[in-house]
C-alpha cells in the first residue's frame, strides 16, 4: 500500500491581527506618548500623579478615537469607559505600592540588631538610633494579642456556631448586630473600657484592659469569617453525624469543627491582623510604658502602635526614624498574618 502524502494546509490563526492591522495601534501608542509629554510640558500637571493623569487623558482620547473610527459611536463610548475604569482601578492600588515602598525605604534606616533586643526604658526619644529599641513594644503587642485572642475567639466561634448550627431564635438579630459591631470605631472600644473599668475606680492602666478593648474589635471579624467557613461545610457531613446517632453537640464537636479547622484558624488570624495595628483603643487603656513588662495585670504596657504614636508625637528626627522602623516591624507582622491566612484559605479549597 502506497502512502499518499496529503498536502495539509498550514494551521492558520485568522483571529490574530495582521501587522498591517496593528499600524493604528502603534500610531496610537506613539500619540499617547507625545500627548503625555506635551501635557506635562505645557500645563500645570507635575509629579507622578500628574504624569499618570496625563497618560490617562491621552490613552482615553486615542483609544476612543481609534474605536470610533473603525466601529462607530457605541464602540467609541465603550473604549472610553474601559480606559477610564482601568485607570481608576490602577489608581486604587497606587497607594499600596507607595506605602510599601516608603515604609521599606524609610524603615530600614532605623533598624539595627539592638532594635529588637532593647527597650526604651533607658533611652530618650532624642537619643541616636543605635540606642534603645522596641522589645517592650513587641512583647506587649504579643501578650495583648494572645489575651484578646483567648477572649474573642471562643465568643466569636460560638456566635458563628449559633448562627450556622443551632439557628435558634434571634439569629437574624445577632447576625445584624455582629455586622453593626464590626463598624464600631476603634476609639469607642477604648473609651468604653476606660469608662467601664478604669475611670473613677482607682485601677490603673495595664495590658489586660488594652487586650479587652482589642477583643471587642476582634470579635466581629472572627465571628463573620467563622460563619462563612462553617456555611461551606457540606450539609451531608452534619446529617451523617446525626444519622450515626450522635447528639448535636457531638456532631458539631467531632464532625463540623474538625472539618472547618483550617478555616477557623484563618478566622482567628484575620482577627489578629485586624487588631495588631490598632492604636486608638490602646491610648486609653494601656498607658504605653517604655520598659519591658511581662505582667499584663500590673503596670503600664507598651505596644508597637503605641511606640509609633509616641515617637510620632515627640517629633524629633531620631524619633521619626524610629517610628518608621517600628512601622516596618508592624507591617511585617501584619503581612505575615495576612499571607498565612490567605495560604490557609487557599489550601481549604
Amino acid at each position: 500500500m502506497s502512502t499518499t502524502t496529503l498536502n495539509y494546509p498550514k494551521p492558520q490563526k485568522p483571529w490574530r491581527p495582521k501587522q498591517r492591522d496593528l499600524i493604528p495601534t502603534y500610531l496610537g501608542i506613539l500619540m499617547v506618548l507625545l500627548g503625555t509629554w506635551a501635557l506635562v510640558e505645557f500645563t500645570g500637571f507635575a509629579g507622578k500623579l500628574g504624569a499618570f493623569v496625563s497618560v490617562v487623558i491621552c490613552t482615553t482620547a486615542v483609544s476612543t478615537f481609534l474605536a470610533g473610527r473603525s466601529r462607530g459611536k457605541q464602540a467609541a463610548k465603550n473604549a472610553a469607559v474601559a480606559s477610564i475604569i482601568t485607570s481608576l482601578a490602577l489608581l486604587a492600588i497606587f497607594p499600596v505600592i507607595s506605602i510599601l515602598g516608603t515604609v521599606l525605604v524609610r524603615g530600614t534606616k532605623g533598624l539595627y540588631v539592638g532594635f529588637f533586643t532593647t527597650d526604651m526604658g533607658l533611652a530618650s526619644v532624642n537619643d541616636p538610633l543605635n540606642v534603645g529599641g522596641i522589645l517592650h513594644a513587641i512583647v506587649g503587642t504579643f501578650i495583648m494579642i494572645i489575651i484578646a485572642t483567648l477572649v474573642s475567639v471562643p465568643l466569636g466561634i460560638s456566635t458563628a456556631i449559633y448562627l450556622t448550627e443551632i439557628r435558634g431564635p434571634g439569629s437574624r438579630l445577632i447576625r445584624f448586630l455582629v455586622q453593626a459591631m464590626s463598624g464600631v470605631p476603634s476609639i469607642v472600644a477604648g473609651l468604653f473600657i476606660y469608662s467601664a473599668i478604669i475611670s473613677g475606680s482607682g485601677r490603673g492602666f495595664n495590658g489586660l484592659w488594652g487586650a479587652l478593648a482589642l477583643a471587642i474589635l476582634m470579635l466581629p471579624t472572627v465571628a463573620r469569617t467563622a460563619e462563612e467557613v462553617l456555611l461551606l461545610i457540606a450539609e451531608d457531613l452534619r446529617e451523617a453525624g446525626l444519622a450515626l446517632g450522635a447528639t448535636q453537640w457531638r456532631t458539631v464537636a467531632m464532625v463540623v469543627v474538625p472539618a472547618a479547622k483550617s478555616g477557623l484558624i484563618t478566622a482567628m488570624i484575620l482577627g489578629i491582623a485586624r487588631i495588631a495595628g490598632e492604636t486608638a483603643p490602646l491610648l486609653f487603656t494601656t498607658g504605653g510604658g517604655d520598659v519591658t513588662n511581662l505582667n499584663p495585670v500590673d503596670g503600664v504596657m507598651g505596644s508597637i502602635p503605641f511606640a509609633i504614636w509616641k515617637a510620632l508625637i515627640s517629633g524629633s528626627a531620631e524619633s521619626n526614624a524610629r517610628a518608621w522602623a517600628s512601622i516596618l516591624v508592624l507591617l511585617a507582622l501584619v503581612m505575615i498574618l495576612f499571607f498565612s491566612a490567605r495560604r490557609l484559605g487557599k489550601a481549604r479549597r
Binding site: 499600596v96 510620632l312 495576612f338
Partner: peptide
C-alpha cells in the same frame, strides 16, 4: 484582589504616617 485585601489590613497609624509624610505634599 489580594493587593486590595492587603490594603484593608494596613493599620490606620500607617495611613496617618504615610499621609502626613508622602501624600500631604502632592
Amino acid at each position: 484582589v489580594g493587593v486590595i485585601d492587603l490594603m484593608a489590613a494596613f493599620p490606620s497609624i500607617l495611613f496617618g504616617l504615610w499621609g502626613f509624610n508622602v501624600l500631604m505634599p502632592s
